[in-house]
Design a protein around this nucleic acid. Structure first.
Lengths: 343, 343
DNA sequence: ATGAAAGCGCTAACAT
DNA sequence: ATGTTAGCGCTTTCAT
């Protein structure tokens, strides 16, 4: 009940009547120990509730901890959960444990988290860079042998390995799908802030597809939304225009949720939609949602594989792994123009 | 480029020509330091890329680390992401950082993770208990003053604070909603393993509602599914029966995804559905999905508040906080029996 | 098979 | 304003 001091190795040793080193030997299965001593030590450990102080151990041993540190921007977005799962599956077989924390896409919090990880001497650092964050301070660590990998977006101020989706060609393919089905006014509903790497790339892909089709790039059709509600509002505004779009391209999964929700609310089935990144229940919608699916598990696995190779001594130049997206046509991209309200 | 030894406080001190303690003072803004010394130290720190070894610091200072450790069973389930967000929001204002890892619902991995957290002397431990895990080993830590909170499910072998949803009454209310709309054959599609606390409670609520309505408890209508695909398959099997249910109750969000996907695939709009736990796009479905919504952020916030109170010296008896669920009627629970295929 | 002493990187306590 | 000594809890090295 009282807040007692945690027992130490010495406490256990005293209890049994042996030296600290002997207890250490038993616990780490280092050196020999008589069966009797081992038993007594184990019993005392259990009795006192002794828990070795990993910090004290690591400070002496010197080597890095067996932890992989991951910084993600949003705990609620299942995309990053899937990435984390991919990482865990891959590093787990090497006995490494994944620990993660959220930056909330704030550079200061990202910095605080990475510093915390670094001070703990983690084995691998993985970061989904926040908008506006610099990573120059990681240079010395990487040079000292710490594998650093950027996920989903490239880092800034540091040349390091990174793993990203084919954002530009994926967006291009999604928009081209809409073009192929006769749409000429296609809106882009994307993230804030506009400096976000993935948004830039996807917007570039969108514009490429329009250009290839000889379609004008109407700035009025490019909107920003920082969350699901914002995407719904943006969708409503677009459709209220005198010259509304006939198709919508969602720049990310959250925007997709907002668009789909708003279309359902206003009972508009005549608007075509293609979304970047898959969402749960996409196939249960009417029409089912056509998406440019990312492969988050693979992004995680690729990042982990790269980092493990570095840990094994790979000193080659920093590389960028690109994980392909895949257009999954489920129907919503093929809504006929003829079906439009009042048209 | 080479894997050099990381610089230490002593290295910085030597570089500047002062004592280690002086560098320590500058870095921790402890005691005084002349402007000139401070500058030189800071410059050397930057030049050498010195990063204080938090472990060495903590071992000396003795106090707990400023970390909250959280163990969740599934990185991909957005429910736990939302819980984590609630925790982070609350502990963040106290300067604590949330770090989390996944047990994959495996007791051994849960134990390994908690041991890792404990060995790091975290300030607060939060666990979503895995099925079959025992938590007796946490007793000495809790007695030594470490706040331990179980989330979503109670722990085993240790009386500690816990925060759970009103699983039983929530399930009862969801099923009662179906009963009120005339359904007499209502199936339960739930988790494996059947020992899972939330499943047991929700199943009990389901049975209570049936009993109150004077309906028989047909074991053939209670199915198990361990993932979305399994829930789809279970749904298909139920509907192929000679005496199929007219309504389905989903025991969790994953089961809900499976049910809804299968109903969409087979174009069955005549089956009523109520799900425990909300899912994205629930309102965009046709019919929109009626759910017994949990409040994961609130679960996280309540857990964090409880733990912080313990940290502040609250030594009262362990308590269980119950976070209410809320029936959100969107339509799918009101599907008319009369609309059934071939009926 | 076991122990004693030194030291990992850092800071508390006491100098100066 | 700065330095010295001791020591956190553990492991290494070298004895025994």
């Amino acid at each position: 009940m009282a807040a007692n001091r945690r027992p130490t190795l010495a406490d256990v040793a005293r209890e049994v009547g042996v030296s600290a080193k002997t207890v250490s030997r038993v616990l780490n299965e280092d050196g020999p120990a008589s069966a009797r001593t081992r038993e007594q030590v184990l019993a005392a450990v259990a009795r006192l509730g002794f828990q070795p102080n990993l910090m004290a151990r690591n400070i002496r041993v010197g080597g890095p901890d067996t932890t992989v540190g991951l910084v993600i921007p949003d705990l609620g977005n299942p995309f990053f959960g899937a990435v984390a799962r991919g990482i865990e599956d891959t590093v787990g077989v090497r006995g490494l444990t994944l620990l993660m924390g959220s930056s909330a896409d704030d550079p200061d919090r990202e910095r605080a988290l990475t510093d915390k990880f670094l001070a703990r001497r983690i084995s691998i650092l993985m970061v989904v860079p926040s908008v506006g964050a610099s990573h120059a301070h990681l240079k010395s660590h990487r040079d000292a042998g710490l594998p650093v990998v950027f996920l989903d977006r490239p880092g800034a101020g540091l040349t390091a390995d990174s793993v990203v989706s084919t954002n530009r060609t994926g967006a291009h393919d999604g928009v081209a799908h809409l073009v192929a089905h006769g749409h000429r006014r296609i809106a882009f509903v994307g993230d804030l802030p506009t400096r976000l790497y993935t948004r830039r790339e996807r917007l570039a892909g969108y514009r490429e597809a329009l250009r290839e089709a000889g379609l004008p790039d109407d700035p009025a059709l490019i909107t920003n939304a920082h969350d699901q509600h914002g995407a719904s509002a943006a969708t409503a505004r677009l459709l209220e225009r005198a010259d509304p779009p006939t198709a919508l391209f969602a720049g990310n999964n959250i925007a997709a949720l907002g668009i789909v929700t708003e279309l359902a609310r206003s009972r508009r089935k005549d608007v075509a939609v293609v979304a970047f990144d898959d969402v749960p229940l996409a196939e249960a919608l009417e029409p089912a949602l056509t998406v440019v699916a990312q492969n988050p598990e693979e992004i995680g696995r690729a990042a982990a594989a790269t980092a493990l190779a570095r840990l094994d001594g790979d000193r080659s130049r920093a590389r960028t792994v690109t994980v392909p997206t895949r257009l999954i046509s489920r129907g919503s991209g093929e809504q006929r123009l003829a079906a439009r309200h009042g048209a």
